[in-house]
Simulated scan of single mutants.
Amino acid sequence: MPAKTTKTALVTGASSGIGEATALKLRELGYTVYGAARRTERLQKLADVGVRPLAMDVTDDASVRAGVEKILSETGRIDALVNNAGYGSYGALEDVPLAEARHQFEVNVFGALRLTQLVLPHMRAQRAGTVVNITSMGGKLHTPLGGWYHGTKFALEALSDCLRLEVKPFGIDVVVIEPGGIATEWGGIAADRLEASSNSGPYAKQATAVAASLRSEANTKRNSPPTVIADAVAKAVTAHRPRTRYATGFGARPLIALRKVLPDRAFDTVISRAVGLPR
């Protein structure tokens, strides 16, 4: 009887939070896991348990190509791609410099899709594979001063839907994971960028309120651990017929459901009050 082939997974943004938890989970499941990040010194915890650290900047085409080639040269296959690298750049739409807005799209959207482009030929040859795109409940709803960030997540949701149709004939699944509030560095980073962009001028009062909400200890305590997202990824890559979407983590399901049923202006009011916007 032939030996069972070990499946290979690539997880981006693996240096902390959701990416780190996902890399650990897939390693527990027996995958050969490559954890990718720009700062490989932050991957030591993963390396200690057998995850292979991989230097990769998803905005650098040469870096992405080299990473995929390294994986294929060492294992000969890629069975799961988890596009997790991303960040939240908040600030009033008017205030955020276009260079920063473009960078947000480069990381959150184009980086994920470029990696997908490079991996798909090998998945097609295998007639199997799963592409997992980590979006957000923010890909289904909106918050004030988060326009550029939400734009990236809405875009990744739409691209995932189109891709799912395109690759279905080749035995490849495309799955979207929509995290709610997760206990990671994300909120603090988003708040810092918000204040850098809009802490003065006409949007200053809104920026103060939203930054306080992002850093709120009450919200932080309610946030779910990154392992809930790792568990959802594990379900997606091991299921014979995975769901197209997994909404999980604090607030994700109820807020997405609320957005579906409320008229736009009613939802605007709910979200504005939730983040403490001045009236």
Results as ranks from 00 to 15, higher is better:
residue 3 A to L: 13
residue 5 T to W: 10
residue 8 T to E: 07
residue 11 V to Y: 05
residue 12 T to I: 04
residue 12 T to S: 02
residue 13 G to I: 05
residue 17 G to A: 07
residue 19 G to W: 06
residue 19 G to N: 04
residue 20 E to V: 07
residue 24 L to K: 15
residue 25 K to Q: 15
residue 25 K to D: 07
residue 26 L to R: 06
residue 26 L to N: 00
residue 28 E to Y: 08
residue 29 L to A: 12
residue 29 L to N: 05
residue 32 T to D: 09
residue 34 Y to G: 07
residue 35 G to M: 06
residue 38 R to L: 08
residue 38 R to W: 07
residue 40 T to F: 06
residue 40 T to R: 02
residue 43 L to W: 02
residue 45 K to P: 14
residue 46 L to V: 01
residue 48 D to H: 12
residue 51 V to E: 03
residue 53 P to D: 01
residue 58 V to G: 01
residue 61 D to N: 14
residue 65 R to C: 09
residue 65 R to L: 12
residue 67 G to Y: 01
residue 67 G to D: 11
residue 70 K to W: 12
residue 73 S to L: 13
residue 75 T to G: 12
residue 75 T to A: 11
residue 80 A to Y: 08
residue 81 L to Y: 03
residue 83 N to C: 10
residue 86 G to W: 08
residue 86 G to H: 06
residue 87 Y to R: 14
residue 91 G to F: 04
residue 91 G to N: 04
residue 102 R to H: 04
residue 102 R to G: 01
residue 106 E to T: 10
residue 107 V to G: 04
residue 107 V to F: 03
residue 109 V to R: 00
residue 110 F to G: 00
residue 111 G to E: 05
residue 115 L to W: 04
residue 115 L to S: 09
residue 116 T to Y: 02
residue 121 P to A: 02
residue 121 P to E: 07
residue 122 H to K: 06
residue 123 M to A: 09
residue 123 M to V: 06
residue 123 M to G: 09
residue 124 R to M: 12
residue 124 R to N: 04
residue 125 A to C: 07
residue 125 A to H: 00
residue 126 Q to C: 09
residue 126 Q to K: 08
residue 127 R to D: 09
residue 127 R to A: 05
residue 131 V to Q: 04
residue 134 I to H: 10
residue 138 G to Y: 11
residue 141 L to E: 12
residue 144 P to A: 02
residue 145 L to R: 12
residue 147 G to N: 02
residue 147 G to H: 03
residue 148 W to C: 12
residue 149 Y to W: 07
residue 152 T to S: 15
residue 154 F to L: 01
residue 155 A to N: 06
residue 156 L to S: 04
residue 156 L to F: 11
residue 156 L to W: 10
residue 161 D to Q: 14
residue 162 C to N: 14
residue 162 C to V: 15
residue 163 L to R: 08
residue 164 R to C: 00
residue 170 F to C: 07
residue 171 G to Q: 05
residue 172 I to E: 11
residue 173 D to P: 05
residue 173 D to E: 15
residue 173 D to R: 13
residue 179 P to V: 05
residue 179 P to N: 00
residue 179 P to D: 04
residue 182 I to A: 00
residue 184 T to P: 10
residue 185 E to S: 11
residue 186 W to Q: 00
residue 186 W to P: 12
residue 193 R to P: 08
residue 194 L to A: 05
residue 194 L to E: 06
residue 195 E to K: 08
residue 195 E to H: 10
residue 199 N to Q: 13
residue 199 N to H: 13
residue 201 G to D: 01
residue 201 G to C: 09
residue 201 G to H: 06
residue 203 Y to N: 10
residue 204 A to F: 13
residue 205 K to A: 15
residue 206 Q to S: 14
residue 208 T to M: 15
residue 209 A to E: 11
residue 210 V to K: 08
residue 210 V to W: 07
residue 211 A to Q: 02
residue 214 L to Q: 00
residue 215 R to P: 08
residue 215 R to M: 09
residue 221 K to A: 15
residue 224 S to A: 11
residue 226 P to V: 06
residue 227 T to V: 08
residue 239 A to Q: 02
residue 239 A to N: 02
residue 239 A to R: 01
residue 241 R to M: 14
residue 242 P to S: 08
residue 242 P to D: 04
residue 245 R to M: 13
residue 250 F to K: 07
residue 251 G to D: 04
residue 255 L to K: 11
residue 255 L to E: 03
residue 256 I to F: 04
residue 257 A to V: 06
residue 258 L to E: 01
residue 262 L to N: 02
residue 266 A to E: 15
residue 268 D to I: 13
residue 269 T to H: 15
residue 271 I to P: 11
residue 272 S to Y: 12
residue 277 L to K: 03
residue 278 P to H: 09
residue 278 P to L: 08
